[in-house]
Amino acid sequence: MDGIRVITCDIFGTTVDWYTGVAEQVAKLLPDVDAGSFTSQWREKYLPSMANVREGRRDWAYLDALHRESLDELLARHGLDPDEDTRGRLVRAWHRLPAWPDSVPGLAQLSGRYTTAALSNGGFALLTNLVKAAHLPFDCILSAELARNYKPDASVYRTAARLLDVEPGEVLMVAAHGWDLDGARAAGLRTAFVERPEEKGPDHPADRAEDVTADLSAGSFTELAELLSRG
Results as ranks from 00 to 15, higher is better:
residue 3 G to P: 07
residue 4 I to R: 04
residue 5 R to G: 07
residue 5 R to P: 06
residue 6 V to C: 08
residue 12 F to D: 00
residue 19 Y to M: 03
residue 19 Y to R: 01
residue 23 A to Y: 00
residue 24 E to S: 08
residue 25 Q to S: 11
residue 26 V to L: 04
residue 26 V to D: 12
residue 27 A to N: 13
residue 28 K to H: 12
residue 36 G to A: 09
residue 37 S to V: 03
residue 37 S to T: 07
residue 40 S to W: 03
residue 46 Y to Q: 08
residue 51 A to Q: 13
residue 52 N to H: 10
residue 53 V to G: 10
residue 58 R to D: 11
residue 58 R to Y: 00
residue 60 W to F: 11
residue 61 A to H: 01
residue 61 A to W: 00
residue 72 D to Y: 02
residue 72 D to F: 01
residue 72 D to G: 05
residue 73 E to Q: 13
residue 77 R to N: 13
residue 79 G to H: 04
residue 80 L to D: 06
residue 82 P to K: 05
residue 90 L to K: 00
residue 91 V to K: 02
residue 95 H to D: 15
residue 97 L to P: 13
residue 99 A to W: 05
residue 100 W to Y: 11
residue 109 Q to K: 13
residue 111 S to I: 05
residue 113 R to L: 13
residue 114 Y to L: 01
residue 115 T to P: 02
residue 122 G to N: 09
residue 128 T to P: 05
residue 132 K to L: 14
residue 137 P to E: 01
residue 139 D to G: 15
residue 140 C to T: 14
residue 145 E to C: 05
residue 147 A to N: 15
residue 149 N to D: 12
residue 150 Y to Q: 05
residue 156 V to K: 03
residue 157 Y to K: 11
residue 159 T to P: 11
residue 161 A to Y: 04
residue 163 L to P: 12
residue 163 L to H: 14
residue 166 V to T: 12
residue 171 V to N: 02
residue 172 L to M: 06
residue 173 M to L: 11
residue 189 L to F: 03
residue 191 T to C: 04
residue 196 R to W: 05
residue 199 E to P: 02
residue 201 G to Y: 06
residue 204 H to Q: 06
residue 205 P to Y: 04
residue 207 D to M: 12
residue 208 R to C: 11
residue 213 T to A: 08
residue 227 L to E: 14
residue 230 R to S: 14
